[in-house]
Computed example of a mutant assay.
Amino acid sequence: MIRAVMVMNTQGKPRLAKFYDSQPVDKQQELIRSVFGVLCSRAENVSNFVEADSIFGPDSRIVYKHFATLYFVLVFDSSENELAMLDLIQVLVETLDKCFKNVCELDLVFNYSKIHTILDEIFFGGQVLETSSAEVMKAVEEISKLETASNSITLVPKSVSGWRGR
């Protein structure tokens, strides 16, 4: 099971954090700080896999990928394959690149809703739903069309008694 998806910048500021097991906000912030502490202390030439027993409890692992100024992180248990999790990070990044034409940190900050839509298409309740970036993009485009259509509908009453336009 996937326990958390995080994206943070190189200063440790979380740009996206979604926990799939219930955690109070202060505990989530503590976990994010702990994960960043581990990631920033690692050399560039070491593995992207980290045992996370001391942070998330027994049977926890972290896989991460560093792109430009962002760390993309998945926290999961031993029921998941480490290489598959690394591939899922790649799917997430590819999908974000397709949505935002070279995704950057500001895209994550200003498109919070769309980012969560993408996450919800890839993961649900800590389980992997989709591993194809193209399929995720199709779903996101359909959702965007539906949102646009629902936002353009305006309801005008047939008659309003006692109202006079001025």
Rank of each mutant, 00 (worst) to 15 (best):
41 S>L: 03
56 F>E: 03
147 E>I: 06
72 F>Y: 15
38 V>K: 12
131 T>N: 13
124 F>Q: 11
50 V>C: 08
72 F>C: 05
18 K>I: 02
155 L>P: 00
132 S>C: 13
46 V>E: 13
27 K>L: 11
57 G>K: 02
134 A>E: 15
2 I>Q: 01
66 H>E: 14
122 I>V: 14
108 L>S: 09
9 N>E: 08
150 S>H: 01
150 S>C: 04
35 V>Q: 08
160 V>C: 07
11 Q>M: 10
85 M>L: 10
48 N>H: 12
83 L>P: 00
126 G>R: 01
153 I>D: 01
66 H>L: 15
9 N>A: 08
165 G>M: 05
60 S>Q: 01
21 D>V: 02
155 L>F: 14
98 K>I: 04
134 A>P: 01
160 V>N: 03
85 M>S: 14
136 V>S: 06
151 N>K: 14
50 V>P: 05
22 S>C: 02
143 I>Q: 15
105 E>R: 05
132 S>P: 12
136 V>K: 08
86 L>E: 07
130 E>C: 15
46 V>N: 10
25 V>A: 11
138 K>I: 09
89 I>R: 09
35 V>H: 09
111 N>R: 02
108 L>Y: 07
155 L>A: 05
90 Q>L: 05
62 I>R: 00
155 L>E: 08
10 T>C: 05
113 S>G: 08
28 Q>W: 00
95 T>W: 12
140 V>E: 11
102 N>Y: 03
58 P>Q: 08
5 V>P: 02
47 S>T: 15
44 E>P: 04
14 P>K: 05
18 K>V: 04
153 I>N: 03
36 F>P: 00
134 A>H: 13
83 L>G: 00
42 R>N: 04
43 A>V: 01
118 I>N: 10
52 A>L: 03
87 D>A: 04
65 K>P: 00
4 A>Y: 05
18 K>Y: 04
134 A>T: 12
108 L>D: 07
10 T>N: 11
88 L>H: 13
60 S>C: 04
96 L>N: 06
31 L>H: 14
107 D>F: 12
49 F>E: 12
161 S>H: 02
8 M>N: 01
114 K>L: 15
53 D>Y: 06
125 G>I: 01
